[in-house]
Computed example of a mutant assay.
Amino acid sequence: MIRFFATRRVIAIATAIACIGGVAAGSAAAADAYPSRPITMIVPFGAGGGTDVIARTVSEELSKALGQSIVVEARPGANGAIGSAVVARAAPDGYTLLFTAQSTYSLNPNLMKAPLFDQIKDLVPVASIGRSPWLIVVPADSPMKSVADVAAYGKANPGKLAFPFWQSSVLVTGTIFGQLAGIEMRRVPYKGQVEATTDFLGGRLPLMVTDIAGGRAPIEAGTMRLLGTTTANRSTTFPDAPTLREQGFDVVTDSMLAVFAPAGTPKPILDRLNAEITKVILTSDKVRDRLRQLGIEPTAMSQAEADAFVRSELTRWEGMIRRAGLQKE
């Protein structure tokens, strides 16, 4: 009897090992064949915004490296949560990816009472793309010429300062600044950056938090005035613009663009995507020129480093959100 059970146990263990080996072999085979059909890249913000523009540039070069077309889809809504949820619920096979900004993976989980998905359990970081600052801007004809002027105006005109937001990091940046300045900053929600910028340039908003992708052309054309940046150090695109920290407001909220996949995506596929994306952002002149034009510093990370970064940023932004006094909604 003992010999029978021992034999049966050996058979069970051998079968389990064989199954594990089969799964590993299957994953390796899937990775070798990947990609065998077009890939969908979801951008959870409006078409034409900074994240969308960069996603399309990177995807065009990435498709050449992978030998398959990549279809970029803008799926805006709920500060990026809707498009992100589409990817979180997709099959973990590498054919549905998320190209997003930091607001969706570091801020939304700290701001939503009922998140549409679990950031850590449902999505896995694939690769980083680059880091960019936020810019504090006013209309070119505004009497405000510095963030100190904004603070003074806000104190003298309670309730008259408002700024648009379409993603969480814009919301938190503007709110923290208002809090540090001791002024009321009304928050006006928008579906996307393009719509917000149109209203701002149309004179319907006195202040805006924007990225270099959306702000560079109007600033250089003289229709926007740049008051400061949210990086720890000055932007290489606008080296003459002081940071908010230099001006006495401790706001550091720059954003890291990254690519995610559904949790459970085979590691060989993640490794392949990480290697190809990293190669594209570091070696493609077209991508590097585009990133440089948009004021984004290419930032390469391994898949493991990207995962660690996302987890640490969740904690860092949780502290900033508490500091801003924002409640989960």
Rank of each mutant, 00 (worst) to 15 (best):
F5I: 15
R9E: 14
I11M: 14
C19G: 14
G22R: 02
V23F: 14
A31I: 10
D32L: 15
Y34P: 09
T40G: 11
A47G: 09
T51M: 06
I54T: 15
A55Y: 08
V58I: 11
S59K: 10
S59D: 12
E61F: 11
L66F: 05
Q68D: 03
Q68C: 05
I70D: 05
V72F: 05
A81D: 12
A85K: 11
V86P: 01
D93G: 01
T96M: 10
S103C: 01
L116M: 10
D118H: 01
Q119S: 04
K121S: 12
D122H: 02
D122C: 01
V124W: 00
S132R: 15
W134A: 13
I136D: 07
P143N: 06
S146V: 06
S146M: 04
A148C: 08
A148Y: 10
A151T: 10
A152W: 05
Y153I: 02
G154V: 04
G159D: 09
K160T: 15
A162I: 11
L171N: 10
V172T: 03
A181T: 03
G182T: 06
I183W: 09
R186D: 15
K191V: 13
A196H: 00
L201W: 11
P206Q: 05
V209L: 14
V209E: 12
I212D: 13
A217Q: 13
E220P: 09
R225W: 07
N233A: 14
F249K: 06
D250M: 09
V252S: 09
P266D: 01
P268S: 00
R288W: 03
R288H: 01
R290W: 11
L291R: 04
V310K: 12
L314V: 08
I321E: 01
R323V: 10
Q327F: 11
